[in-house]
């Protein structure tokens, strides 16, 4: 086992344990902070996969953006500490069935896919290729996403404005 495997397992455990803590924690704020560790672990795994741009985007968008937004939301809500959070199992049978199907699907995909394994060359830089692809092959998706974000932005601005009147 090389040291990179060790690092991978470190990040994987971090991700899984903190993800478990997110759902099982009593305190919403704590859950949000466990999410930080989860995101971080995921980005670490991205780095090990040679996807440095995606890893940094993960940190930028999820930690720097979404998590902060989440925390803001949580902290600005009144009555967060004494609210009762339901964590018990409510409907055990449907849950087990649902999860079973999902697990089966994932496992079957994992075993059936013919993974391309190339040990030697890991692309050194991904951002250049990524940028090229985004602006050539996937330009429609890219533009649509841009428009979607713009709509969201305009919507947010107009909502903020309406309250003032």
């Amino acid at each position: 086992m090389s040291i990179y495997d060790l690092i991978f397992y470190l990040f994987a455990t971090l991700t899984i344990v903190s993800a478990l803590m997110v759902v099982s924690s009593d305190n919403i704020v704590r859950s949000a902070f466990y999410l930080l560790a989860t995101f971080f672990g995921v980005s670490g795994i991205y780095v090990l996969l040679g996807a440095d741009f995606v890893a940094v985007t993960q940190i930028m968008v999820y930690i720097g953006g979404i998590l902060i937004l989440l925390l803001f939301g949580v902290m600005l809500t009144s009555n967060i500490t004494n609210v009762e959070i339901k964590k018990g199992t409510a409907k055990i049978l449907p849950a087990v069935i649902g999860i079973g199907i999902l697990l089966g699907a994932v496992v079957s995909v994992m075993t059936r896919t013919k993974w391309k394994i190339h040990l030697t060359e890991i692309p050194q830089t991904t951002s250049f290729e990524l940028g090229k692809l985004l602006i050539t092959d996937y330009v429609l998706v890219f533009e649509l996403l841009g428009i979607l974000l713009l709509i969201a932005l305009i919507g947010a601005a107009s909502m903020a404005r309406r309250e003032q009147e």
Binding site: V56, T57, I59, M60, I63, G65, L67, I68, L71
Partner: peptide, 12 residues
């Protein structure tokens, strides 16, 4: 990009 991402993560 890394620098920007991590200086944003300081907020957390």
């Amino acid at each position: 990009f890394f620098v920007l991402a991590f200086s944003g993560a300081v907020v957390a």
